[in-house]
Amino acid sequence: MAFSTPDDCRYADSHEFVRAEGELARIGVSAFAVDQLGDIVFVELPKVGASLSQGSSFGTVESVKAVEELLAPISGVIEARNEAVLASPEELQNDPYGEGWLLLVRPSEPAQIDALMDAATYSAKVDGH
């Protein structure tokens, strides 16, 4: 099954995506990862103002199957978090690239975004899983 991988996003090996939006970057979880998790029942995210360090854990997504750590695809400072997903975790399943985003971050090293996989590379990786 082919999963949605928007071209305007970059992807980490751990299945988080980053969408550059001017000076900020929106972080979420790919449609492939959401599908693998199944029914999502709980999302835990850090507070606004917290710092992310690329590759380190910044929260969890809990499904009926498992609890998965979220790993920061880039370093930066959290400017906003999606309170709607915290209140209704199913938003993450319904629209991972839209209403289901997780964090809005001010990148400390914008070049980290370019180093992530592009949509074609990520699609090839997950389609062959």
Rank of each mutant, 00 (worst) to 15 (best):
A33T: 04
A66Y: 02
S56K: 14
P89G: 07
E99K: 14
G28S: 05
S30K: 03
A20Y: 08
N82A: 10
G98L: 09
E91K: 14
P89D: 00
W101A: 02
E62D: 02
R19P: 03
Q36C: 06
N82Q: 08
A50H: 12
E44P: 09
V85M: 00
E23T: 11
G98D: 06
V34L: 07
L52T: 06
V85W: 00
A66Q: 09
S88E: 11
D35T: 14
V105R: 05
V77Y: 12
R106F: 14
T60M: 02
S57E: 14
D95M: 07
R81G: 10
P73Y: 00
G100N: 03
F32Q: 06
G55L: 06
R26A: 12
V61R: 01
L37N: 05
L104G: 01
V34H: 10
T60R: 08
P46N: 06
S88N: 13
V43P: 03
E62H: 00
Q54I: 03
V64T: 11
V29N: 07
V29F: 15
V64H: 04
G100Q: 01
P89R: 01
E79K: 15
K47T: 13
I78Y: 04
K47A: 15
S30W: 00
V61I: 09
G38N: 01
V77P: 13
F42M: 04
E90H: 15
L92H: 03
L24S: 12
A31I: 09
D95T: 10
E99M: 12
I78C: 02
K65E: 06
V61L: 04
E99I: 10
N94H: 14
L24V: 07
L102H: 07
L104K: 10
A20Q: 15
G38T: 01
S108Y: 00
P96T: 03
E69Q: 08
Q93V: 09
Q36N: 08
S88H: 14
L52I: 07
R19M: 15
E79G: 04
E23R: 14
G55M: 05
D95G: 12
G98M: 09
V61E: 05
L52K: 05
R106Y: 13
S75M: 07
E68P: 15
I40E: 06
E79T: 13
S63T: 09
D35Y: 13
G55C: 07
A31T: 11
L86E: 08
N82T: 05
V85G: 01
A84R: 11
S53H: 12
K47V: 13
E83I: 07
L71H: 13
E44R: 10
F58D: 10
S63E: 04
A80I: 12
A33L: 04
E44H: 10
S51F: 02
L86F: 05
E91L: 15
R81I: 14
I27C: 02
I78M: 04
L52V: 08
L104Y: 07
D39A: 07
L102E: 14
V105W: 05
Q54K: 12
Q93F: 10
L92F: 08
A20C: 10
P73K: 08
G49E: 09
A72K: 00
E21M: 13
I40Y: 01
G49A: 08
E69S: 15
S57Y: 02
F58T: 11
A31S: 12
Q93S: 14
A84V: 06
G98Q: 05
V61H: 01
V48F: 04
P96K: 01
V41E: 05
L102A: 07
A84D: 12
V64W: 01
E79W: 06
E68W: 14
V64M: 02
G49M: 03
